[in-house]
Protein backbone atom coordinates (compact mmCIF):
# COMPACT_ATOMS: atom_id res chain seq x y z
CA UNK A 1 0.00 0.00 0.00
CA UNK A 2 2.83 2.37 0.86
CA UNK A 3 4.48 1.77 -2.52
CA UNK A 4 1.12 2.45 -4.19
CA UNK A 5 0.75 5.75 -2.39
CA UNK A 6 4.36 6.69 -3.13
CA UNK A 7 3.73 5.92 -6.81
CA UNK A 8 0.62 8.06 -6.89
CA UNK A 9 2.47 10.84 -5.11
CA UNK A 10 5.24 10.79 -7.71
CA UNK A 11 2.63 10.90 -10.47
CA UNK A 12 0.95 13.87 -8.78
CA UNK A 13 4.23 15.77 -8.77
CA UNK A 14 4.74 15.11 -12.48
CA UNK A 15 1.23 16.39 -13.19
CA UNK A 16 1.83 19.51 -11.11
CA UNK A 17 5.12 20.22 -12.91
CA UNK A 18 3.31 19.93 -16.24
CA UNK A 19 0.53 22.26 -15.13
CA UNK A 20 3.19 24.64 -13.90
CA UNK A 21 4.91 24.47 -17.29
CA UNK A 22 1.72 25.46 -19.08
CA UNK A 23 1.15 28.31 -16.63
CA UNK A 24 4.74 29.42 -17.06
CA UNK A 25 4.47 29.25 -20.84
CA UNK A 26 1.75 31.93 -20.68
CA UNK A 27 4.33 34.48 -19.55
CA UNK A 28 6.41 33.90 -22.63
CA UNK A 29 3.78 33.49 -25.27
CA UNK A 30 0.95 35.76 -24.21
CA UNK A 31 2.50 39.14 -24.86
CA UNK A 32 5.78 40.60 -23.61
CA UNK A 33 5.83 41.01 -19.83
CA UNK A 34 8.12 44.06 -20.02
CA UNK A 35 5.68 45.85 -22.30
CA UNK A 36 2.96 45.15 -19.81
CA UNK A 37 4.94 46.57 -16.93
CA UNK A 38 6.54 49.75 -18.21
CA UNK A 39 5.21 52.89 -19.83
CA UNK A 40 5.68 53.95 -23.42
CA UNK A 41 8.48 56.38 -22.72
CA UNK A 42 10.86 53.82 -21.22
CA UNK A 43 14.06 53.63 -23.23
CA UNK A 44 15.35 50.45 -24.79
CA UNK A 45 18.26 50.49 -22.37
CA UNK A 46 16.02 50.67 -19.31
CA UNK A 47 13.93 47.87 -20.74
CA UNK A 48 17.04 45.77 -21.16
CA UNK A 49 18.08 46.48 -17.56
CA UNK A 50 14.69 45.51 -16.27
CA UNK A 51 14.77 42.37 -18.40
CA UNK A 52 18.14 41.48 -16.91
CA UNK A 53 17.01 42.23 -13.36
CA UNK A 54 13.87 40.10 -13.68
CA UNK A 55 15.98 37.26 -15.06
CA UNK A 56 14.15 37.19 -18.37
CA UNK A 57 17.41 36.69 -20.27
CA UNK A 58 18.22 33.45 -18.47
CA UNK A 59 17.78 30.16 -20.31
CA UNK A 60 14.26 28.79 -20.42
CA UNK A 61 14.81 25.96 -17.88
CA UNK A 62 16.40 28.29 -15.31
CA UNK A 63 13.38 30.57 -15.53
CA UNK A 64 11.04 27.62 -15.23
CA UNK A 65 12.89 26.25 -12.20
CA UNK A 66 12.72 29.67 -10.57
CA UNK A 67 8.98 29.90 -11.32
CA UNK A 68 8.36 26.41 -9.91
CA UNK A 69 10.36 27.07 -6.75
CA UNK A 70 8.51 30.33 -6.16
CA UNK A 71 5.18 28.67 -6.84
CA UNK A 72 5.89 25.99 -4.24
CA UNK A 73 6.38 28.78 -1.72
CA UNK A 74 3.15 30.42 -2.81
CA UNK A 75 4.97 33.22 -4.62
CA UNK A 76 3.47 34.10 -7.99
CA UNK A 77 4.81 37.61 -8.51
CA UNK A 78 2.99 40.92 -8.81
CA UNK A 79 -0.38 41.39 -10.41
CA UNK A 80 -0.05 43.86 -13.30
CA UNK A 81 -3.51 45.19 -12.75
CA UNK A 82 -3.85 45.32 -8.96
CA UNK A 83 -0.17 46.16 -8.36
CA UNK A 84 -0.15 43.77 -5.40
CA UNK A 85 1.39 40.34 -4.85
CA UNK A 86 -0.76 37.66 -6.49
CA UNK A 87 -0.52 35.42 -3.45
CA UNK A 88 -2.10 38.13 -1.34
CA UNK A 89 -4.98 38.46 -3.80
CA UNK A 90 -5.53 34.72 -3.84
CA UNK A 91 -5.52 34.36 -0.06
CA UNK A 92 -8.01 37.21 0.12
CA UNK A 93 -10.37 35.60 -2.40
CA UNK A 94 -9.93 31.95 -1.51
CA UNK A 95 -12.29 31.78 1.52
CA UNK A 96 -15.19 33.02 -0.60
CA UNK A 97 -14.71 30.35 -3.25
CA UNK A 98 -14.00 27.54 -0.77
CA UNK A 99 -17.04 28.34 1.36
CA UNK A 100 -19.27 28.45 -1.70
CA UNK A 101 -17.84 25.19 -3.09
CA UNK A 102 -18.05 23.45 0.25
CA UNK A 103 -21.73 24.29 0.68
CA UNK A 104 -22.37 23.34 -2.95
CA UNK A 105 -20.63 19.97 -2.57
CA UNK A 106 -22.32 19.17 0.74
CA UNK A 107 -25.69 20.07 -0.75
CA UNK A 108 -25.02 17.87 -3.80
CA UNK A 109 -24.02 14.89 -1.64
CA UNK A 110 -26.61 15.26 1.10
CA UNK A 111 -29.46 15.50 -1.38
CA UNK A 112 -27.97 13.50 -4.26
CA UNK A 113 -27.04 10.26 -2.48
CA UNK A 114 -30.35 9.74 -0.63
CA UNK A 115 -32.31 10.73 -3.74
CA UNK A 116 -30.31 8.19 -5.77
CA UNK A 117 -30.95 5.47 -3.20
CA UNK A 118 -34.63 6.34 -3.02
CA UNK A 119 -35.17 6.28 -6.77
CA UNK A 120 -33.26 2.99 -7.04
CA UNK A 121 -35.34 1.30 -4.35
CA UNK A 122 -38.70 2.63 -5.57
CA UNK A 123 -38.05 2.28 -9.24
CA UNK A 124 -41.60 2.73 -10.42
CA UNK A 125 -42.91 5.06 -7.73
CA UNK A 126 -44.56 8.33 -8.71
CA UNK A 127 -42.13 10.40 -6.66
CA UNK A 128 -39.18 8.53 -8.22
CA UNK A 129 -40.40 9.31 -11.69
CA UNK A 130 -40.89 12.96 -10.76
CA UNK A 131 -37.37 13.16 -9.34
CA UNK A 132 -35.92 11.46 -12.40
CA UNK A 133 -37.67 13.77 -14.84
CA UNK A 134 -36.70 16.78 -12.72
CA UNK A 135 -33.08 15.64 -12.76
CA UNK A 136 -33.13 15.73 -16.56
CA UNK A 137 -33.74 19.47 -16.30
CA UNK A 138 -30.86 19.78 -13.85
CA UNK A 139 -28.50 18.06 -16.24
CA UNK A 140 -29.57 19.86 -19.36
CA UNK A 141 -30.00 23.51 -18.29
CA UNK A 142 -26.68 25.40 -18.25
CA UNK A 143 -25.50 26.75 -14.89
CA UNK A 144 -25.66 30.44 -15.79
CA UNK A 145 -29.28 30.08 -16.90
CA UNK A 146 -30.24 28.39 -13.64
CA UNK A 147 -28.53 31.23 -11.78
CA UNK A 148 -30.38 33.86 -13.78
CA UNK A 149 -33.73 32.12 -13.28
CA UNK A 150 -33.12 31.88 -9.52
CA UNK A 151 -32.17 35.56 -9.39
CA UNK A 152 -35.33 36.43 -11.29
CA UNK A 153 -37.62 34.38 -9.05
CA UNK A 154 -36.11 34.92 -5.59
CA UNK A 155 -34.41 38.25 -6.08
CA UNK A 156 -36.58 40.21 -8.48
CA UNK A 157 -40.11 38.78 -8.22
CA UNK A 158 -40.27 37.66 -4.59
CA UNK A 159 -37.40 39.79 -3.26
CA UNK A 160 -36.58 37.34 -0.48
CA UNK A 161 -32.90 36.61 -1.09
CA UNK A 162 -29.88 38.74 -1.97
CA UNK A 163 -28.63 38.19 -5.52
CA UNK A 164 -25.06 39.43 -5.42
CA UNK A 165 -22.01 39.56 -3.18
CA UNK A 166 -21.27 37.74 0.07
CA UNK A 167 -23.26 39.94 2.40
CA UNK A 168 -21.62 40.81 5.74
CA UNK A 169 -18.51 38.78 6.45
CA UNK A 170 -16.59 38.27 9.67
CA UNK A 171 -12.82 38.62 9.44
CA UNK A 172 -11.02 35.99 11.49
CA UNK A 173 -7.64 37.39 10.60
CA UNK A 174 -6.58 34.63 8.22
CA UNK A 175 -10.01 33.83 6.87
CA UNK A 176 -13.14 35.78 6.12
CA UNK A 177 -16.35 33.88 6.64
CA UNK A 178 -19.97 34.46 5.72
CA UNK A 179 -21.16 31.64 7.94
CA UNK A 180 -21.50 33.81 11.04
CA UNK A 181 -23.90 36.50 9.89
CA UNK A 182 -27.51 36.21 8.75
CA UNK A 183 -26.90 38.21 5.60
CA UNK A 184 -23.79 36.12 4.84
CA UNK A 185 -25.77 32.90 5.12
CA UNK A 186 -28.66 34.26 3.07
CA UNK A 187 -26.25 35.37 0.36
CA UNK A 188 -24.87 31.85 0.16
CA UNK A 189 -28.20 30.22 -0.68
CA UNK A 190 -28.72 31.12 -4.31
CA UNK A 191 -25.12 30.70 -5.55
CA UNK A 192 -24.62 27.39 -3.73
CA UNK A 193 -27.90 25.96 -5.03
CA UNK A 194 -26.93 27.01 -8.54
CA UNK A 195 -23.51 25.46 -8.16
CA UNK A 196 -24.86 22.24 -6.60
CA UNK A 197 -27.71 21.53 -8.96
CA UNK A 198 -25.75 19.93 -11.80
CA UNK A 199 -23.51 17.89 -9.47
CA UNK A 200 -26.54 16.84 -7.46
CA UNK A 201 -28.34 15.35 -10.45
CA UNK A 202 -25.17 13.70 -11.65
CA UNK A 203 -24.47 12.07 -8.27
CA UNK A 204 -28.09 11.03 -7.92
CA UNK A 205 -28.18 9.33 -11.31
CA UNK A 206 -24.86 7.64 -10.64
CA UNK A 207 -25.91 6.32 -7.23
CA UNK A 208 -29.17 5.08 -8.70
CA UNK A 209 -27.48 3.25 -11.57
CA UNK A 210 -24.88 1.66 -9.27
CA UNK A 211 -27.48 0.64 -6.69
CA UNK A 212 -29.63 -1.03 -9.34
CA UNK A 213 -26.56 -2.87 -10.56
CA UNK A 214 -25.57 -4.07 -7.09
CA UNK A 215 -29.13 -5.06 -6.16
CA UNK A 216 -29.03 -7.54 -9.06
CA UNK A 217 -25.90 -9.30 -7.80
CA UNK A 218 -25.77 -12.79 -6.35
CA UNK A 219 -24.65 -11.76 -2.89
CA UNK A 220 -27.70 -9.53 -2.45
CA UNK A 221 -29.90 -12.42 -3.50
CA UNK A 222 -28.07 -14.68 -1.07
CA UNK A 223 -28.48 -12.10 1.72
CA UNK A 224 -32.22 -12.02 1.02
CA UNK A 225 -32.33 -15.81 1.05
CA UNK A 226 -30.77 -15.71 4.53
CA UNK A 227 -33.56 -13.50 5.78
CA UNK A 228 -31.34 -10.47 6.44
CA UNK A 229 -33.39 -7.37 7.27
CA UNK A 230 -34.34 -5.31 4.23
CA UNK A 231 -32.89 -2.15 5.74
CA UNK A 232 -29.52 -3.82 6.26
CA UNK A 233 -29.53 -5.25 2.73
CA UNK A 234 -30.19 -1.87 1.20
CA UNK A 235 -27.85 0.25 3.24
CA UNK A 236 -25.12 -1.88 4.72
CA UNK A 237 -24.74 -4.34 1.84
CA UNK A 238 -25.92 -2.64 -1.36
CA UNK A 239 -25.09 1.03 -0.73
CA UNK A 240 -21.54 0.42 0.42
CA UNK A 241 -20.84 -1.73 -2.62
CA UNK A 242 -22.10 0.94 -4.96
CA UNK A 243 -19.92 3.64 -3.41
CA UNK A 244 -16.58 2.94 -5.09
CA UNK A 245 -17.45 4.46 -8.48
CA UNK A 246 -19.44 7.17 -6.70
CA UNK A 247 -16.34 8.22 -4.76
CA UNK A 248 -14.34 8.50 -7.99
CA UNK A 249 -16.87 10.71 -9.72
CA UNK A 250 -17.63 12.77 -6.63
CA UNK A 251 -13.93 13.47 -6.17
CA UNK A 252 -13.59 14.68 -9.74
CA UNK A 253 -16.78 16.70 -9.43
CA UNK A 254 -15.58 18.38 -6.27
CA UNK A 255 -12.62 19.63 -8.25
CA UNK A 256 -14.82 20.92 -11.00
CA UNK A 257 -17.14 22.57 -8.48
CA UNK A 258 -14.23 24.71 -7.39
CA UNK A 259 -13.08 25.29 -10.95
CA UNK A 260 -16.52 25.94 -12.42
CA UNK A 261 -17.40 28.29 -9.64
CA UNK A 262 -16.18 30.86 -12.19
CA UNK A 263 -19.57 30.95 -13.91
CA UNK A 264 -21.59 31.02 -10.74
CA UNK A 265 -19.32 33.66 -9.22
CA UNK A 266 -19.73 35.81 -12.31
CA UNK A 267 -23.51 35.51 -12.32
CA UNK A 268 -23.77 36.34 -8.62
CA UNK A 269 -20.82 38.77 -8.49
CA UNK A 270 -19.34 36.52 -5.80
CA UNK A 271 -15.94 37.93 -4.76
CA UNK A 272 -14.04 34.65 -5.13
CA UNK A 273 -11.10 33.37 -7.13
CA UNK A 274 -13.24 32.76 -10.20
CA UNK A 275 -14.26 36.37 -10.40
CA UNK A 276 -10.64 37.36 -9.90
CA UNK A 277 -9.70 35.11 -12.82
CA UNK A 278 -12.35 36.56 -15.13
CA UNK A 279 -11.10 40.07 -14.36
CA UNK A 280 -7.53 38.89 -14.97
CA UNK A 281 -8.50 37.57 -18.39
CA UNK A 282 -10.12 40.87 -19.31
CA UNK A 283 -7.05 42.84 -18.18
CA UNK A 284 -4.48 40.33 -19.54
CA UNK A 285 -3.17 40.01 -15.98
CA UNK A 286 -0.90 37.05 -16.69
CA UNK A 287 0.53 36.41 -13.17
CA UNK A 288 -3.00 36.06 -11.79
CA UNK A 289 -4.05 33.74 -14.62
CA UNK A 290 -0.95 31.59 -14.15
CA UNK A 291 -1.45 31.40 -10.40
CA UNK A 292 -5.12 30.51 -10.79
CA UNK A 293 -4.22 27.72 -13.20
CA UNK A 294 -1.66 26.30 -10.78
CA UNK A 295 -4.03 26.50 -7.80
CA UNK A 296 -6.90 24.79 -9.64
CA UNK A 297 -4.47 22.16 -10.96
CA UNK A 298 -3.31 21.56 -7.41
CA UNK A 299 -6.89 21.21 -6.14
CA UNK A 300 -7.64 18.54 -8.76
CA UNK A 301 -4.44 16.62 -8.12
CA UNK A 302 -4.90 16.78 -4.36
CA UNK A 303 -8.51 15.55 -4.49
CA UNK A 304 -7.60 12.70 -6.80
CA UNK A 305 -4.84 11.70 -4.46
CA UNK A 306 -7.29 11.61 -1.55
CA UNK A 307 -9.75 9.59 -3.65
CA UNK A 308 -7.07 6.99 -4.41
CA UNK A 309 -6.43 6.58 -0.71
CA UNK A 310 -10.17 6.35 -0.01
CA UNK A 311 -10.35 3.28 -2.26
CA UNK A 312 -8.21 1.45 0.25
CA UNK A 313 -10.52 2.41 3.07
CA UNK A 314 -13.65 1.24 1.24
CA UNK A 315 -12.43 -1.84 -0.61
CA UNK A 316 -10.56 -4.53 1.36
CA UNK A 317 -9.59 -6.32 -1.86
CA UNK A 318 -7.07 -3.55 -2.52
CA UNK A 319 -5.82 -3.53 1.05
CA UNK A 320 -4.76 -7.17 1.05
CA UNK A 321 -1.12 -7.97 0.69
CA UNK A 322 -1.08 -9.05 -2.90
CA UNK A 323 1.80 -11.46 -2.55
CA UNK A 324 0.18 -14.05 -0.32
CA UNK A 325 -3.48 -14.34 0.52
CA UNK A 326 -4.14 -17.44 2.57
CA UNK A 327 -5.66 -20.31 0.68
Amino acid sequence: MISFIAGRFAQSIVVMLTVGLIAFAMFRFVGDPINNMVGQDTTAEQREQLRERLGLNDPFYVQYARFALNAVQGEFGQSYFHRRPVSELLVERMPATLELSLIGAVLALVVGVPAGVYTALNRNGILSNLIMSGSLLGVSIPTFLIGIILILVFGVVWRVLPTFGRGDVVDLGWWTTGFLTASGLKSLILPSVTLALFQLTLIMRLVRAEMLEVLRTDFIKFAKARGILTRSIHFSHALKNSLVPVITITGLQLGSIIAFAIITETVFQWPGMGLLFIQAVLEVDIPVMAAYLVVIGFVFVFINFIVDILYFVVDPRLRADRAGSGH
Binding site: T217, F219, F222, S236, H237, N241, V314, D315, P316
Partner: peptide, 9 residues
Protein backbone atom coordinates in the same frame (compact mmCIF):
# COMPACT_ATOMS: atom_id res chain seq x y z
CA UNK B 1 -17.21 -16.23 -5.92
CA UNK B 2 -20.21 -13.92 -6.22
CA UNK B 3 -22.36 -15.16 -3.31
CA UNK B 4 -20.50 -13.26 -0.59
CA UNK B 5 -20.40 -9.52 0.03
CA UNK B 6 -16.85 -8.56 -0.98
CA UNK B 7 -16.65 -5.58 1.39
CA UNK B 8 -17.52 -7.36 4.64
CA UNK B 9 -15.53 -9.86 6.65
Amino acid sequence: LTSLNPLQT
